[in-house]
Each structure stands twice: as structure tokens, then as C-alpha cells.
Design a protein around this nucleic acid. Structure first.
Lengths: 162, 162
DNA sequence: ATATTTGCAAAGCGTTTGCACGGTT
DNA sequence: AACCGTGCAAACGCTTTGCAAATAT
């Protein structure tokens, strides 16, 4: 069965080898932000005939095609996630390494305002919050995205950055 | 004559070798965000008796002492700047590689609000704006920090990140 | 059939480190 | 004098690459 990313590859006319199919599937099914080593591990579980060099090459190809986005959360290894619709940012739990995605309209606005007052237009930006879980108060018992933004969480393979 | 950073080293009781003195001076005089190779180049100009390994070690030591801050603007090399009073961020001109520093009180507030609504407190954060110079309009002829924040600019040694 | 992709191992890059020597306190 | 910092070169971790064999179109 065709994974979402495999479909994107075909649309773009990429040659679909067994290895690419497997990497595409692993990425399609990943809810987190795996690094190359982790992708290699997951891909190997589905198909022994993959070398880590191919994972590197595939990941680079997919990034050039706009299928994947490379993230650098510090710690020396690049991490990847399928390209999403709109811009979103990451909050990294410094204790667990868990990555929570969020977006915020006000932040978008503010970034453009700041750039504008310096005489620039925003080409791209990088925002990462490193935070520590707050003891939740009594009247804030439910997990729910509060007004003003949305959040989605996903686990990461490993701990926080250096 | 004692550089600002050399004074900080002495305050902290660091052993002041010739090499550290030179690196301290180079850093004190740097208005930009040099990487290790660039620091090594500038230090070597003042004193041949420096190896790049020592620059690496010194820069790490200074960072541990809170004298220096390591930045990662992408591109694989770490870059350094003397620790400043308050938090500030960077806008990188994608065409020239110039780095402009800025701060913004509203942004601080917003970051804490976003973290709070996700149930976190901010430990640290990373914000970088990549932008392109806007053609300046007629009625905006002077360079001046606009209301709401301050900016200071400094050149970098090299171009923008990948 | 032909151009691309793969695996392997070697190389590359920024950074760190073991060791013997040299300098600072 | 004791210790710590240094230079050199080797090692490191992640990533890329040259080459010959394998594969997709």
C-alpha cells in the first residue's frame, strides 16, 4: 500500500526504489522528529537491504523536493519531519526531550513587525522554546489547547540538547 | 592593557596565559559573531604561539564561565559573542550574512504566555529571523530604532546559512 | 538500454582529546 | 614545586562521496 510520502515522490517523478519506498513509509508513519540513525533503525526493521548512506541520500533528496524539513534542535544531529501545511514551532521539554509543536498567530504578526521596523522582510525564521513542565494548578486540570493557538505533541527518540 | 574579558577572567580566578589573554582581547574587540576559525585567524595575527586546539578549549572555558555565548546560525560551525546584559536575538540578512541584534519586550511576554498555555515555563529559547532588506520608503529615511525595541548591528565573517 | 541508485568503505568537516612539554601561580 | 595549560596529531561523530555493482524506467 502506498504511503502518503510515496505518493508525493511519484507526483514529482522520482524513481521509486525499494529503499525509497521504505524510507517514505517510515516517514509517513512517524509522528515525531527522528534523526537519520533512528530512521535507519526503523527502515532496517522493514527491510534489511538499506544502508545508512542511502538514508542520508534519500533524506536529502526529499528535503530538496520539499517533502521533508530538516530541523536542528542542537546536539549535532539533524532531525526530520514531513512538511506540514503552515508554519509551526517547537517546544522541547528539557527534562524528557519530548517535542511539542505549536503555532501562534500573534507570533507571526510580531515577527513581521519586528523585521519591518528593522527594514527587513521575513524570509524564514527559527523559533525553539526549551521549557520545563509546570506543576499544573488545581483549576487547570484538563489538557486542552488554550485560546490563541493550537498544539500537537509528539515524542522524540532521545533526550534534550547539550 | 587589560581587555574587558580579561578582567572577567581575573575576577573568576582563571589562570591567565598569554594565549587566553589574546583570545580575550580578540573577543573583547569583536563586534560580530565570529566562529572558531575566525577567532584563530585574528588571534594568530596578534600572537603566533596559538594553536586552534587552544582556541577551542578557551572558547569552551569562557562559555562555561558565562563569559561567552555560543550561537548556532546553521552552517555547521558554532559562533561566539560576549555575554550581554539582557536577552537579545538575531536577524540574519540572507543576502549579505550581516547579523543585526534586536530585543523586544512584547516577544518576551508572548514566549512566556505560549509556554504557559502549554503548561511549561521557559528555560531558554532560540529565535532567529532570516530576512531580506526592504527597499526603504521615502518618509522613512533615517536609521533609528523604532518604538518597542532596540537594535544594534554587527558584521559577520561569512554568508548566511544553508 | 541507459541513466540512476545503491552499498561499501574511505574521506571530509568541525570539534575533542591523549600525551609529553612548557608556563603560571 | 605543583599544577594546569598548551601543541601536536590522532580520534571523534555526523555526514558526504568515489566507485563498481544493481536496478528502475
Amino acid at each position: 500500500m502506498e504511503s502518503r510520502i510515496e505518493r508525493l515522490c511519484i507526483e514529482r517523478g522520482l524513481k521509486m526504489t525499494g529503499q525509497r519506498r521504505v524510507v517514505a513509509r517510515v516517514l509517513s508513519e512517524a509522528g515525531d522528529h527522528p534523526d537519520v540513525e533512528e530512521l535507519y533503525r526503523r527502515a532496517s526493521a522493514l527491510d534489511q537491504h538499506i544502508s545508512i548512506a542511502t538514508v542520508y541520500r534519500t533524506v536529502r533528496l526529499f528535503e530538496e523536493q520539499g517533502i521533508l524539513e530538516r530541523r536542528d534542535f542542537g546536539g549535532g544531529r539533524a532531525r526530520y519531519e514531513p512538511t506540514e501545511d503552515g508554519p509551526h514551532y517547537h517546544l522541547i521539554d528539557v527534562d524528557t526531550g519530548r517535542v511539542i509543536e505549536f503555532q501562534d498567530a500573534e507570533h507571526e504578526r510580531l515577527m513581521h513587525a519586528i523585521a519591518a521596523r528593522l527594514g527587513f522582510e521575513v524570509v524564514s525564521l527559527r523559533l525553539e522554546l526549551f521549557g520545563r513542565r509546570l506543576p499544573r494548578s488545581n483549576e487547570d486540570r484538563d489538557a486542552r489547547p488554550a485560546r490563541g493557538g493550537a498544539a500537537r505533541s509528539g515524542n522524540t527518540a532521545e533526550g534534550a540538547s547539550r
